[in-house]
Write a protein that binds this DNA or RNA. Structure first.
Lengths: 242, 242
DNA sequence: CATAGAAATGACCACCCGGTCATTTCTCCG
DNA sequence: CGGAGAAATGACCGGGTGGTCATTTCTATG
């Protein structure tokens, strides 16, 4: 009556919501995927600010107005991608956590390293966005992502260490939180190195898959030895190739 | 004759050179400092691409043309800052390396952790630029900086480990390169965490200086214990406050 | 076929960017 | 004071940005 509301606003919803306008949901799912994939690539390759809407629509060969009709704004597009990505990440993480929970600490740690490296390689875009977010102060949703993902990861490692302590394969006097911090830092660095020879530090993490696998195992092994109740001299300095 | 060369180009020099036009060197040293400090701040706070020449000259209250007369371009300004920063970093690093070379491995490692944390806090701008460069692919001079600084750091840690092995305080079966990788990763994460509660992981690295010092020591201690020939149970889980 | 509503379009906007350069102002010396 | 050279200036440029919206095209239904 009073306010005829000429603009059919797609309902405000929550501020943290990432729901696109209904238009996008009605699209051919194949087109939806193409749009999301190409956008994700742009953000992962260039970071948030350097990412260009013009490039995205150019590559997709659609009109710029369409993208804004779908997501409202650049940040809206990013929020949508971000939400989907986090949900997509959680499932494999849980699968890793719940699998082989009876195995010994060193085996589980190696498995986690391997699985994480595989994930980072299979989803270079998600990994690229996460890496950038760690150091870029003004990424939208930075606080949300970091607290969600990192809390999950660190809790996971802490529980892993505590379980190892109960099993007797990890020194009891080790502070689980500190150990988790070291593990997470090492793994993160290793994953970062695997995509960039400059950060490789001569470890061979960015070379061929076979070598990388062996080096990842060696890294996990070194951590395990440090945490184990007694040294395991069977695995010596040169014994790096599995 | 043929080419009167109307533009008094300031001599090309080397491509990697960072020498500003002579104009800048003739300036009042106090003004030089102000210009460099404000520029460094802009790059550290915003990264290379988001850094704005307009904001810099606005804050300095000088004309935009002046800055371009001094350094030729945005990248020229950055190169100059970068060169100075690297030179400035090297001295304290060497001092740490050469000091107390007779001390035992754990003491030296703790000392390095403490000194690095102090440096990162005393030079937040340099540290901010370095952190960003690690993940930002298209920083100018990224390759140069990373290979210089990281090679230096990793060699330093490797030598530290090897020395510890000779002294007998570090397990002989430990691969020094891998140990150096773990140490560097942990230290880097700790320094990153100290400026950002989001990355702190509940360790207390970003809280007050006293707590931070204790936590840094605990981190170094945990690494040392992992690397040492036998466990040192005297320093137990709760024994964090020095 | 007619037509209503959804979807797609791209010219256009204001803004900011790095960079230029003719001009003015300053400084110092004869 | 006069003048030369160094230094400072800021209007201006082309180009890229995120964002808008009147218009056209498509599609489904009666």
């Amino acid at each position: 009556m009073d306010t005829p509301s000429p603009t059919p606003r797609p309902a405000p919803r929550s501020d943290l919501d990432s729901a696109p306008g209904s238009t996008f949901n009605n699209l051919d799912p194949q087109k939806q995927r193409r749009v999301l994939d190409e956008s994700l690539r742009e953000f992962a390759e260039n970071g948030y600010h350097q990412a260009s809407i013009n490039r995205i629509v150019g590559r997709l060969d659609i009109a710029k107005g369409s993208l804004f009709q779908y997501f409202g704004s650049k940040e809206g597009l990013f929020r949508h991608l971000f939400r989907r990505a986090v949900d997509e990440i959680k499932a494999p993480l849980r699968a890793i956590r719940d699998a082989d929970s009876a195995e010994a600490f060193p085996q589980r740690l190696k498995r986690v390293f391997t699985a994480s490296a595989a994930f980072a390689q299979a989803h270079p875009f998600l990994w690229g966005i996460y890496r950038r977010m760690l150091t870029q102060e003004d990424f939208p949703l930075r606080a949300t992502l970091l607290s969600e993902v990192r809390a999950e990861a660190l809790t996971f490692f802490r529980e892993l260490v505590e379980l190892g302590q109960k099993q007797g394969s990890v020194r009891a006097d080790l502070n689980p939180a500190i150990a988790a911090f070291v593990i997470e830092a090492t793994l993160d660095r290793a994953l970062t190195a695997q995509g960039s020879p400059l950060l490789d530090a001569g470890l061979g993490l960015s070379s061929d898959p076979n070598t990388r696998q062996a080096r990842l195992d060696a890294l996990a092994e070194a951590l395990c030895q440090g945490f184990s109740v007694r040294s395991v001299p069977s695995i010596a300095k040169g014994d790096v190739n599995a």
